[in-house]
Simulated scan of single mutants.
Amino acid sequence: MEATTPALVVQPGEAAGAALTNGAFELLADGGAVSASRLTLATGADGAPPHHHRLSHETFYVLDGTMLFRLGDTLTTVGKGGLVVIPPGLPHVFGAAEGHGADVVVVLSPGIERFGYFEQLAAISRGEAEFASLLPQQHRYDVHFEDLPDWRTPPSR
């Protein structure tokens, strides 16, 4: 059986990027079957704000360093070579673990075009835009924000 859709190949240097104050972001694939990106975080830097996805699974593969995840009410540290798969609806947030940087590949499936979201996050990280500017875009990007102001602190039981 012949494929009806051509394969996607992204060569080194072809990905669209966005500079962050605490790292770097490369968008490898935007929409379709998957959205894929590579995120490099400085020591102890936060990634995206606390959120959940209604439609997509989000998968993280740690290429280097150590990541800290809050998955619902659970804090989990994941090192180089570790994999995290987050189902739709689970509130989560992530960043480089304290004292560590991180390099991670992130894949959302199904994919939703999110480059505009990442450009806006980069502008917010540089102080060029307010976080509130993302709120009207939550449904468009399937990124629904959660209120977890101190996400790195273990929840009280």
Rank of each mutant, 00 (worst) to 15 (best):
residue 152 R to Y: 10
residue 5 T to G: 03
residue 47 G to A: 10
residue 131 F to C: 11
residue 103 D to I: 05
residue 106 V to C: 06
residue 116 G to W: 04
residue 60 F to L: 10
residue 75 L to S: 03
residue 135 L to W: 08
residue 26 E to I: 00
residue 23 G to C: 03
residue 97 A to L: 02
residue 121 L to N: 05
residue 14 E to N: 10
residue 143 V to F: 06
residue 110 P to S: 04
residue 97 A to N: 10
residue 131 F to T: 11
residue 68 L to K: 05
residue 114 R to P: 00
residue 54 R to T: 14
residue 23 G to A: 03
residue 58 E to C: 06
residue 61 Y to S: 02
residue 140 R to D: 11
residue 131 F to A: 15
residue 99 G to S: 08
residue 118 F to T: 03
residue 18 A to L: 01
residue 100 H to F: 13
residue 110 P to K: 04
residue 83 L to K: 03
residue 50 P to C: 06
residue 78 V to D: 06
residue 106 V to K: 00
residue 43 T to I: 13
residue 69 F to Q: 00
residue 82 G to M: 11
residue 30 D to I: 06
residue 77 T to A: 14
residue 91 P to R: 08
residue 64 D to R: 12
residue 122 A to Y: 00
residue 23 G to E: 02
residue 27 L to I: 06
residue 62 V to S: 06
residue 157 R to C: 03
residue 91 P to H: 08
residue 91 P to F: 08
residue 93 V to Y: 05
residue 140 R to T: 15
residue 93 V to F: 04
residue 116 G to Y: 07
residue 142 D to E: 09
residue 130 E to A: 15
residue 48 A to L: 08
residue 72 G to S: 04
residue 143 V to Y: 01
residue 27 L to R: 06
residue 3 A to F: 09
residue 40 T to N: 10
residue 38 R to E: 09
residue 140 R to A: 14
residue 30 D to S: 10
residue 67 M to H: 00
residue 55 L to M: 06
residue 94 F to T: 06
residue 136 P to N: 04
residue 120 Q to S: 11
residue 75 L to C: 03
residue 34 V to F: 13
residue 37 S to D: 04
residue 106 V to M: 08
residue 26 E to K: 08
residue 91 P to A: 02
residue 12 P to R: 06
residue 134 L to D: 01
residue 112 I to K: 02
residue 74 T to C: 02
residue 97 A to I: 02
residue 37 S to W: 09
residue 121 L to F: 08
residue 103 D to N: 14
residue 32 G to S: 07
residue 144 H to I: 15
residue 125 S to D: 12
residue 139 H to L: 15
residue 63 L to M: 09
residue 69 F to L: 01
residue 15 A to W: 10
residue 81 G to F: 03
residue 60 F to Y: 15
residue 87 P to R: 13
residue 100 H to T: 10
residue 2 E to S: 14
residue 104 V to H: 09
residue 72 G to W: 05
residue 63 L to D: 08
residue 146 E to R: 01
residue 108 L to I: 00
residue 56 S to A: 15
residue 13 G to I: 01
residue 116 G to C: 08
residue 95 G to N: 08
residue 26 E to A: 12
residue 22 N to T: 14
residue 64 D to I: 04
residue 76 T to Y: 00
residue 69 F to H: 01
residue 3 A to E: 09
residue 25 F to G: 06
residue 125 S to Q: 11
residue 147 D to I: 14
residue 130 E to L: 12
residue 50 P to Q: 05
residue 16 A to M: 11
residue 145 F to I: 10
residue 100 H to P: 00
residue 33 A to M: 11
residue 115 F to E: 10
residue 117 Y to V: 04
residue 80 K to A: 13
residue 157 R to S: 15
residue 47 G to I: 12
residue 154 P to Q: 03
residue 126 R to S: 13
residue 134 L to N: 01
residue 115 F to D: 07
residue 66 T to R: 15
residue 92 H to M: 11
residue 121 L to W: 02
residue 56 S to V: 04
residue 40 T to E: 14
residue 137 Q to L: 15
residue 111 G to I: 07
residue 128 E to K: 15
residue 72 G to N: 03
residue 59 T to F: 00
residue 126 R to M: 11
residue 107 V to Q: 02
residue 56 S to E: 15
residue 128 E to N: 14
residue 71 L to T: 07
residue 96 A to M: 13
residue 117 Y to A: 12
residue 86 I to V: 13
residue 107 V to F: 05
residue 7 A to M: 08
residue 98 E to F: 05
residue 20 L to M: 14
residue 112 I to Y: 00
residue 92 H to K: 09
residue 71 L to C: 02
residue 107 V to E: 02
residue 147 D to V: 15
